[in-house]
Simulated scan of single mutants.
Amino acid sequence: MTRDSDTKTPGKKPRPDDRDARLKAALKANLGRRKAQARARAAQDDVSDDKTNKKDG
């Protein structure tokens, strides 16, 4: 059997500033991925629209 106190690691809790910085960086990276994904989808839609217009015309 293990005690609850044995399973927890001793040490300091991370400072709120560290957490804020980490979350800010993660949010910025996520936003960058989403924008890149949206740009890729828009470019793909433009290419498929061009192909359908050439076939019709």
Results as ranks from 00 to 15, higher is better:
residue 56 D to Q: 10
residue 19 R to H: 08
residue 2 T to A: 06
residue 4 D to N: 08
residue 15 R to T: 15
residue 34 R to Q: 14
residue 21 A to G: 05
residue 17 D to H: 09
residue 2 T to F: 00
residue 57 G to F: 03
residue 38 A to V: 07
residue 30 N to S: 12
residue 15 R to I: 03
residue 57 G to W: 02
residue 10 P to N: 11
residue 38 A to E: 11
residue 35 K to P: 01
residue 1 M to N: 01
residue 52 T to Q: 09
residue 14 P to W: 05
residue 4 D to Q: 09
residue 56 D to H: 09
residue 2 T to K: 04
residue 50 D to C: 03
residue 15 R to W: 11
residue 42 A to L: 04
residue 25 A to S: 14
residue 11 G to V: 01
residue 36 A to D: 15
residue 54 K to L: 12
residue 12 K to A: 15
residue 54 K to H: 07
residue 12 K to D: 15
residue 22 R to S: 14
residue 55 K to T: 09
residue 15 R to K: 15
residue 17 D to Q: 14
residue 32 G to N: 10
residue 31 L to N: 11
residue 17 D to K: 13
residue 45 D to L: 07
residue 57 G to S: 10
residue 47 V to H: 15
residue 13 K to P: 01
residue 42 A to F: 02
residue 44 Q to F: 06
residue 50 D to K: 14
residue 19 R to E: 07
residue 35 K to N: 12
residue 5 S to G: 02
residue 8 K to F: 07
residue 39 R to P: 02
residue 53 N to A: 14
residue 45 D to Q: 10
residue 12 K to V: 06
residue 45 D to K: 12
residue 24 K to D: 10
residue 50 D to N: 06
residue 5 S to C: 06
residue 1 M to L: 07
residue 14 P to G: 05
residue 27 L to N: 13
residue 24 K to L: 11
residue 22 R to M: 12
residue 32 G to V: 01
residue 6 D to Y: 01
residue 43 A to S: 11
residue 13 K to G: 02
residue 5 S to L: 13
residue 23 L to W: 10
residue 18 D to T: 14
residue 50 D to T: 04
residue 55 K to E: 11
residue 16 P to W: 00
residue 51 K to R: 13
residue 35 K to D: 14
residue 53 N to V: 05
residue 21 A to I: 12
residue 18 D to Y: 06
residue 19 R to L: 15
residue 6 D to H: 02
residue 32 G to C: 02
residue 13 K to R: 14
residue 32 G to S: 06
residue 9 T to H: 08
residue 48 S to I: 04
residue 38 A to R: 07
residue 26 A to D: 05
residue 44 Q to G: 09
residue 30 N to E: 08
residue 44 Q to N: 09
